[in-house]
């Protein structure tokens, strides 16, 4: 069943158009990946899905409801969580305060305490450093904090913009291990990545964008079989 849909989105900034008639469907309980070279429109697509920009044409639907013009914070209220590419946390606030901000919409104190305890069990280093400002965390610890932050709302759907960016291979494995676990627990994931190999290893379904348009959709196996990948990243001549 489709949980989130972007239908024929055309979007950009100011006068320029970056996305042209792009459609993707995120099925419930799956990991959906979006890949594409720099400038393909991946981040713009996420911004339109999250409500940071209003598309010029097309629609975003969540569980069938049109949310194209809903402000970002209202989308969060409806169960989407978002981890931006950089600075999805608050550097001058402590680890604990970052988690508290993550639970902004959670009114029940007992629920918050239980979720925080669960996050600290998952990431013990965060418990150790709970009173320190997030600015003092390492890159890997920040990713843990960002994942922990969105888990405070127990979201149905998590949207991630390049979760591997700036991390060592070992840390990328760590992050993807946690993402796989979340997916196994029933959370729907939409992941945009530069790290294609890593994404193809976990995704159930992949979209490839090129120059702001849909280029491919299918399973990772189908994608590798078609040779689209080489075309995308090495240019048409390499295929």
């Amino acid at each position: 069943m489709a949980q989130l849909e972007a239908v024929a989105l055309t979007a950009g900034y100011g006068g320029s158009t970056i996305l042209n008639n792009v459609s993707i469907t995120i099925a419930s309980g799956c990991i959906t990946g979006v890949i594409g070279p720099n400038g393909a429109g991946k981040s713009t697509l996420l911004k339109a899905i999250m409500g940071y920009i209003v598309p010029r044409a097309g629609a975003v639907r969540l569980d069938g409801d049109d949310i194209t013009r809903l402000p970002t914070h209202e989308r969060i209220r409806r169960g989407i969580a978002y981890i931006a590419q950089t600075r999805s946390h608050f550097p001058s606030q402590t680890v604990q305060e970052n988690l508290r901000i993550g639970a902004y919409l959670v009114r029940d104190r007992a629920v918050r305490a239980a979720r925080q305890a669960e996050i600290f069990r998952r990431f013990p280093i965060l418990a150790e450093r709970r009173r320190q400002p997030a600015a003092l965390l390492s890159g890997g610890q920040l990713r843990m904090l960002e994942i922990g932050r969105v888990l405070m709302t127990s979201p149905r759907l998590i949207v991630l913009d390049e979760p591997s960016v700036g991390l060592s291979p070992a840390l990328v494995d760590m992050v993807y291990g946690h993402l796989r676990e979340l997916a196994a627990g029933g959370t729907t994931l939409l992941i945009v990545e530069q790290n294609v190999r890593k994404l193809l290893a976990v995704a159930d379904f992949v979209y490839a964008l090129e120059n702001g348009a849909n280029r491919f959709e299918g399973t990772p196996q189908a994608l590798t079989a078609t040779g689209v990948l080489a075309n995308l990243y090495l240019g048409a001549g390499a295929a």
């Binding site: 999250m50 409500g51 940071y52 402000p71 970002t72 914070h73 969060i76 209220r77 969580a81 978002y82 981890i83 931006a84 600075r87 999805s88 946390h89 608050f90 550097p91 001058s92 606030q93 305060e97 508290r100 901000i101 993550g102 902004y104 919409l105 932050r149 709302t153």
Partner: peptide, 17 residues
């Protein structure tokens, strides 16, 4: 806390509802 969060990063603040 929400005021501090918006002061530090309004986009990230929205992403927390």
């Amino acid at each position: 806390l929400a005021i501090r969060a918006v002061g530090e990063n309004p986009e990230a603040a929205q992403a927390n509802g």
